[in-house]
C-alpha cells in the first residue's frame, strides 16, 4: 500500500509540474510535449485506481493519435505566439472571472458532504478480472449490435469523406498512348472547301499587316 502511495505522489508531482509547464512554456512545441507528459502521468494515476482500460485508451488514443496530430498542426501552422502573448493583459479580466467562477464551483462540489468519501465507502469492483476484459465481454455480448453498427457508421464516414473530397485532377497532362496511336487524320482535320474571296478594301488589309509597335 505504501509503495502505491509513493508512486501516486511521484506521478502526481510530475503531473502538476507538466501541467504547469504546458501553460508557461514559451515554445508551443514544448507545451504540447509537456501535455503528452501530463497525459501519461494521469494514465498512471488511473492505473493506480484499477481503471486500466481507461489508462490504456488514454495513452493509445490521446498520446498516440490526438497529440501527434496536434503536434503536427502546431508545427505546420505559422502562428506568431509572441503576438498572441502580448494581449495577455487585455484578456486577463474576462479569463480571471471565468477561472474564479470555476474555482468557486469546484470548491463547492469538493466541500459538499457527498464529495467526502472515506476510504471505507469506496466500492471495490466485484470482479477480479481486468476491467478491459469485463468491458470487452459487455461490448461483444449485450452491446454487440450497436457496437458493430458504430463500426459501419465509421465506414460510412470514410466512404462519404472520400466521395466528397477525392477529385480527379483536371489539368493533368496525361495522355493515353493507345488513343494517340489510334487517331486518324479524319478525327483531327476537317477540310472545308471555300470559295476564294477577292480582297476588297486594300487599306484595312495593309493596316492589319503592320507589325505591332
Amino acid at each position: 500500500m505504501d509503495l502505491s502511495l509513493a508512486i501516486f505522489y511521484v506521478f502526481a508531482v510530475v503531473l502538476v509540474f507538466a501541467a504547469f509547464r504546458v501553460i508557461t512554456a514559451k515554445n508551443p512545441v514544448h507545451a504540447v510535449l509537456y501535455l503528452v507528459l501530463s497525459f501519461f502521468n494521469s494514465a498512471v494515476l488511473w492505473m493506480l485506481m484499477k481503471a486500466e482500460f481507461l489508462a490504456v485508451s488514454l495513452i493509445v488514443i490521446y498520446v498516440g493519435a490526438v497529440m501527434v496530430l496536434f503536434l503536427f498542426v502546431v508545427m505546420m501552422l505559422d502562428i506568431n505566439f509572441e503576438a498572441l502573448r502580448k494581449s495577455f493583459w487585455k484578456f486577463l479580466p474576462v479569463a480571471g472571472t471565468v477561472a474564479g467562477i470555476m474555482l468557486v464551483e469546484m470548491v463547492l462540489i469538493l466541500t459538499h458532504r457527498y464529495a467526502k468519501i472515506d476510504a471505507a465507502r469506496i466500492v471495490e469492483p466485484s470482479f477480479n478480472t481486468a476491467s478491459a476484459e469485463v468491458l470487452g465481454k459487455l461490448i461483444y455480448t449485450q452491446y454487440f449490435l450497436p457496437f458493430q453498427l458504430a463500426a459501419v457508421l465509421l465506414l460510412v464516414g470514410m466512404v462519404a469523406a472520400i466521395a466528397l473530397t477525392l477529385r480527379k485532377r483536371k489539368n493533368t497532362k496525361y495522355l493515353n498512348p493507345g488513343d494517340q496511336i489510334k487517331v486518324k487524320r479524319e478525327d483531327r482535320v476537317r477540310i472545308v472547301k471555300m470559295q476564294s474571296e477577292p480582297r476588297i478594301v486594300a487599306d484595312d488589309a495593309a493596316a492589319d499587316d503592320k507589325p505591332a509597335a
Binding site: 459501419v152 457508421l153 460510412v156 462519404a160
Partner: peptide, 9 residues
C-alpha cells in the same frame, strides 16, 4: 445516424 449520415453525404 447511419441513415442520416449517408443521406447528408
Amino acid at each position: 445516424e447511419l441513415m442520416s449520415l449517408s443521406i447528408y453525404a
